[in-house]
Amino acid sequence: MTDFLSLWADSLPQLLAATVKVTVPLSIIAFVLALVVAVLATAMRLSRIRPLQWLSRFYVWLFRGTPILVQLFIIFYGLPAAGITLSAWTSAIIAFTLNTGAYAAETLRASVQSIPRGQLEAARTLNYTGWQTVRHVIAPQALRIALPPLGNDLIDLVKGTSLVMVITLADVFQVGRQIAATTFQPLALYAEVAVVYLAIFTVLSFLQSRLERVSNRYIRSSRA
């Protein structure tokens, strides 16, 4: 037992370093970019311009329909054959951005479409411009509706980043694997890696519920 604990204590700094250097920044960068991509894809999907709708549907279809692992392989190992060589970091950011963006786009589209039509008619009768309707009527409500599923997309993303070791990035999982291999203590190390993920998850779900409470303040059921 003391072995176990001292092993955890010895390896923790390296695991935390990998978390702070790879897992967390990759998740944050990819999630922020994914939100931008998702907003664009949603705007295209709900626009009245057919080719843009098709492009958006195609994008979501492609990235939801293939495993992230395959996407990572294509971008990092496949594209060089087509003359496009990207660093492991760039590849990871692109793959996770586009993958999460596709899921987030579906979330946003469903949220926007769940806003009652009457709200949009009210905006029209009040002579709101298209942009004012998006900014003051659609976005605030759609974001509130989208918040819980977007939080889940982020949590999936964080856990999914454990796959970057296949393209040579040393994230928390990869570092844990290396230590497990040299110390011959797979159970201790992988359990420790799991605890790191659980810690991140706990922080995120706490933030998620705080955010939901704030954004739900106008809903009757949350105040009763």
Binding site: Q119, N127, P140, Y218
Partner: peptide
Amino acid sequence: RRRSAMVFQGYNLFPHE
């Protein structure tokens, strides 16, 4: 549109305001 404004059966107030 500026010349008129509609009151709907379903009120259609903005719930977030």
